[in-house]
Simulated scan of single mutants.
Amino acid sequence: MKFKALTLGILIASAGASQAATVNEVFNGKMLGTNQRYFESIAGVPRDSFRNDHTFVVQNCQITATIGDGKVTALRLDLGQGCEANLQSFIGEDAPKPGQTITPGVFGSGQRYTASCLAECGNAADPSAYALWQAPRSAGGMEVLMEMVLAGDKAMTAADEWEKQIKQAAGMDYVLATKFNCETRFNSIAEAVFKDVPVNAITVGYGLPTQRCN
């Protein structure tokens, strides 16, 4: 009887979590800092886990929670196909309006740009460019990392222009070694060319990792 009661309780809890979970409930500023057990009671069981990253599917949208020392430190949402990020719970009035297409430009200026690769990237996976924006201290200094997959026309055009200008100023070896990830002298160029490029995924948290140079 105890075993049946326990099993029934788990099933009820799982059903409750799946019924209650919405993207806005899971991808929410209130989830940052919560413990893993509580987060999973809302988000459900992760579909996949790799190191500290645990991926959940909520309303057919992919949300990845980074969990360190048992607490949620960052949340990532893949955008598109009906999956929209409401950032108001994270950064309040500094957030784009709900339903607005998210591009780096909606956050104004001052983002830090990096990329996984700009030239001779190979065919294993599409490279990405990243724009890291930090909220004002009044909003807690939270970080927002925007990822743009370099596959669509706008993203490719922006990446090609960024690469061209970097190569002209610093040479091809500099580009291949992604040295632009370790300094900011070409950041203003990236800001200009990527400002209207739609974002494919967005991560919110503190101390978010950025791309490195080789």
Rank of each mutant, 00 (worst) to 15 (best):
185 R>S: 10
85 A>V: 08
159 A>E: 03
127 P>S: 03
175 V>N: 01
8 L>E: 10
94 D>R: 13
80 G>T: 11
6 L>Y: 07
28 N>T: 06
122 G>Q: 05
109 S>V: 14
95 A>I: 09
165 Q>W: 05
180 F>L: 03
2 K>T: 11
213 C>M: 00
65 A>Y: 05
147 E>T: 14
27 F>E: 03
52 N>R: 13
12 I>D: 02
208 L>Y: 00
52 N>W: 10
203 T>L: 04
87 L>F: 03
137 R>N: 15
71 K>F: 12
174 Y>K: 01
100 Q>S: 15
150 L>Y: 02
148 M>Q: 09
205 G>R: 00
190 A>V: 04
106 V>I: 15
112 R>K: 15
114 T>P: 03
76 R>Y: 06
76 R>I: 04
66 T>K: 13
60 N>E: 15
213 C>P: 03
168 Q>E: 09
98 P>Y: 05
29 G>P: 05
69 D>A: 13
24 N>H: 12
72 V>E: 11
14 S>R: 09
80 G>W: 09
16 G>V: 04
46 P>W: 04
195 K>C: 00
17 A>T: 07
134 Q>E: 07
98 P>N: 03
18 S>E: 13
164 K>E: 11
5 A>V: 09
146 M>I: 01
124 A>D: 14
139 A>D: 08
155 A>G: 03
198 P>N: 12
187 N>S: 00
11 L>Q: 09
60 N>A: 15
138 S>E: 15
179 K>H: 02
192 A>C: 07
70 G>M: 13
142 M>Q: 08
68 G>S: 15
36 Q>Y: 12
203 T>H: 01
200 N>P: 04
42 I>F: 07
77 L>K: 08
185 R>T: 08
166 I>T: 00
3 F>K: 13
38 Y>E: 13
98 P>R: 01
144 V>M: 06
12 I>M: 07
77 L>R: 06
41 S>T: 12
204 V>W: 04
58 V>F: 06
99 G>D: 08
115 A>M: 06
5 A>M: 09
167 K>Y: 01
210 T>A: 10
20 A>I: 08
174 Y>V: 00
17 A>F: 01
194 F>M: 04
188 S>M: 08
81 Q>T: 13
168 Q>C: 02
33 G>A: 01
119 A>T: 05
1 M>K: 11
18 S>M: 13
61 C>A: 13
172 M>R: 14
